[in-house]
């Protein structure tokens, strides 16, 4: 019994639980204002569809942040692969859809490889490198697209179907996000190399001393992050069907915010992709709920900011409390020892 209760207590204490609860609370409140929010014809669908793209970026960000790095270029990678995907369809009529999709994703992978090489080989902080590549990738995107945009009519219907279709009532995009999430969650939780990422973020010096392949793993996380952002880009093109050069701009901060809100420590070592994904769902849902409850959606970003700051303050408070408890525990055990000795 005690094992069950303690497991239950642990579950309640987890950040993932509270973020999930927050999502439910937001949905309930919004639905009370307008029942269409969750139950309308499009309501439920949007509930699932809206967060999918941000979920991909958030879990990509989480993988990188867990190793005590950061990838600010995710939004630019998304933008570039989204535009490239659309452009392949317009410039190469009759191209097999699946091939275009694969190439769009591989573009993301390639951009991730560049980030990874710069960070792990040149040993420059990821914050600086990805700030640079954020500019570069976005700049290339804008230079390429100019003021043109890809329109729905340019895209083959079997491609846009991915954005609109569903499997057993669950939108395809959500299914893709879920699969990516599941693979990554398994990797981080149950693969040896996935656990290395936590070790590296927890104590980089010790990881080096221990003989973990730090540079290779960090490189790998940027490749994962680039690939996921590439998938997000393709999904973006499929969903909105219109792609301009500014697709996804600003989402790098949303992805960091989602990860931090979901309990991924900004200095690495702890957090899960589940938390990051839930953080993304929370952000997207709040975003959609604001107009429903009568708040202008201009305020959405302020809410995001308050949530980020709230989340890190909360983390610090919990950490301090845990530390205090540990010190007390150690004191009492050491005084016991004294007692036993005398």
């Amino acid at each position: 019994m005690s094992a069950t209760t303690s497991r239950l207590a642990a579950l309640v204490k987890r950040r993932e639980t509270s973020v999930a609860l927050a999502v439910i609370v937001v949905i309930v409140i919004a639905t009370l204002f307008n029942s269409n929010f969750a139950f309308g014809s499009d309501g439920f669908r949007n509930l699932l569809l809206t967060p999918s793209i941000l979920v991909l970026l958030a879990i990509a960000q989480a993988v990188v942040v867990i190793t005590r790095n950061i990838d600010l270029s995710v939004s630019a990678v998304l933008g570039l692969s989204a535009y490239a995907t659309g452009r392949m369809f317009t410039d190469w009529p009759g191209a097999p859809t699946i091939l275009v999709i694969v190439l769009g994703i591989l573009l993301g992978t390639g951009l991730g490889v560049i980030n990874g090489l710069l960070v792990s080989v040149a040993k420059v902080p990821a914050l600086v490198i990805t700030l640079g590549t954020l500019y570069i990738y976005r700049g290339i995107d804008i230079a390429w697209a100019g003021s043109t945009r890809i329109n729905a009519s340019d895209l083959p219907s079997d491609f846009t179907a991915i954005g609109t279709g569903s499997l057993f009532g669950i939108p395809w995009l959500t299914v893709i996000a879920l699969i990516a999430f599941a693979v990554l969650a398994y990797y981080l939780g149950y693969a040896r190399s996935g656990r290395d990422l936590y070790a590296i973020g927890s104590n980089p010096d010790a990881a080096e001393l221990y003989g973990l392949p730090v540079a290779r793993r960090v490189f790998g996380t940027f490749v994962i992050s680039g690939t996921l952002s590439g998938i997000a880009g393709v999904m973006y093109a499929a969903r909105y069907a219109t792609v301009s050069a500014t697709a996804g701009s600003g989402m790098e901060l949303d992805s960091v915010a989602a990860a931090v809100i979901g309990g991924v420590a900004i200095f690495g070592g702890s957090g899960t992709v589940l938390g990051a994904a839930l953080g993304a769902v929370l952000l997207s849902t709040i975003n959609r709920a604001l107009p429903t409850v009568g708040i202008q959606d201009f305020w959405q970003q302020a809410v995001v900011g308050a949530l980020i700051i709230g989340a890190i303050v909360l983390d610090r408070v919990l950490y301090t409390r845990a530390q205090r408890a540990l010190t007390k525990e150690r004191q009492s055990s050491s005084s016991e020892r004294e007692g036993a000795r005398s």
């Binding site: 936590y198 070790a199 973020g201 927890s202 104590n203 010096d205 990881a207 221990y210 702890s270």
Partner: peptide, 9 residues
């Protein structure tokens, strides 16, 4: 001398 652990794990 100073153990090299991964505190989060």
């Amino acid at each position: 001398q100073e153990p090299t652990l991964f505190p989060d794990l």
